[in-house]
Nucleic acid binder design. Structure first.
Lengths: 214, 214
DNA sequence: TAGATTGTTAATCGATTAACAATC
DNA sequence: TAGATTGTTAATCGATTAACAATC
């Protein structure tokens, strides 16, 4: 049961963008596309696109290009969007509630089950159709439902300990908004750290150095 | 007036993380650190850290390491955090309001001036201390205050046109939450695209392929 | 068949790591 | 001075691009 050959991180991080563009093309009614046209649209090279897709076995056809429906299907499968993953959200503060109210979890492959918060004032309320439960009931919930992932919108500080505890109880992935770099913790599960401030600082820097950059 | 030699994008994207870690170290009372210790803490190699810092002229000292205060000072200057940049926010919907209420713009180098929205029901309200103004007054505001950057939390669709218009009126950078990849538009100014869904899809994929990944 | 475009191998480019002389 | 650790050059590694034969 060998893994065919580790796909590089660079490729994996391009997959969602490919998927997004293919969905857009489909919505525009396009039925097929060549690596050259897609490259032009996305600001990549045709070569790179073909290399990337071939990491997963070619799904194109010589002389024709790539069928949009097939591509969407394949990329969706690779991303695991139809694997029926489940998630919970921890921390129904401002950020947590903003996600509950607005973010389309299903579009990214997750069914959000509910949220948890330590503040009793929030218990029982719903945001975006998701119920907030009391943190004291978390362990029992994990035991009963085994969510695949947890969204961490709790305050920083106790994040590493909570992450550890979640992983110990079977959570297999973390979407981390806490500002702590959890991937360093050796948790043994994938972590996606979201650092909005890093992004804005980068912009601050680029504004300073920019003359006529791409 | 030659540029000393383009610093690679990979390095630039590590700068905020360096800055963040240095701030944490300072808060912990640490006064100096070697590339080796910092590497260990951040999960990088000492070599890489020294290479990175030397893109901007060495700010270390042989046999001693790096002084935390100096490092914070230098990284802050490189990032332009004290350049007094200003920004406005466009679109005071759920996401926009979440940022207004919670996000610390100043910590990333920007003074947020105010927000704009097309919905008259929001005009005059404040969120997080920031006033929402009517979109019809935007042009006059740009004329009068020349903000450096704009935060785009408007619905997708009209994003490219609005981005174009902002840039034409002097905006020098965009923090883009619209879901459209604006950097492709050839706007001629730096754009930071925030795609939360890409991040979550990546996690979905990694959960599927994970066995015992780092 | 001729034209188009993939899949795939080889060449290039850039980024990371290793090594070590310089120096505090 | 001896020890530590940088700054910097050289070696390695990986990712992107180019090229082209395979084939629809």
């Amino acid at each position: 049961m060998e893994r065919k050959q580790e796909v590089s991180k660079a490729v994996i991080q391009r997959l969602p963008r490919y998927y997004r563009n293919i969905c857009e093309l489909k919505a525009e009614g396009v039925q097929r596309i060549s690596s050259r046209s897609l490259a032009e649209r996305m600001g990549l090279t045709a070569s790179q696109i073909r290399q990337d897709f071939n990491c997963f076995g070619g799904f194109g056809q010589q002389g024709y290009g790539y069928n949009i429906d097939k591509l969407q299907e394949e990329l969706g499968a690779i991303l695991g969007l139809r694997a029926g993953r489940t998630a919970i959200l921890l921390g129904a503060g401002n950020l947590g509630r903003a996600l509950l109210n607005n973010f389309d979890f299903a579009a990214s492959g997750f069914r959000l089950l509910c949220a948890f918060d330590a503040d009793p004032a929030l218990t029982g309320k719903t945001f975006g159709g998701y119920e907030v439960r009391d943190s004291s009931t978390l362990d029992a919930f994990l035991e009963a439902h085994h969510p695949d992932a947890a969204v961490l919108t709790i305050p920083r500080g106790n994040a590493p300990a909570i992450a550890r505890s979640l992983v110990d109880r079977g959570v297999r992935g973390l979407w981390n908004f806490t500002g702590e770099d959890l991937h360093l913790e050796g948790l043994g599960v994938p972590v996606e750290n979201v650092h909005l401030s890093d992004s804005l600082m980068t912009l601050c820097h680029l504004i300073g150095t920019d003359t006529a950059e791409e």
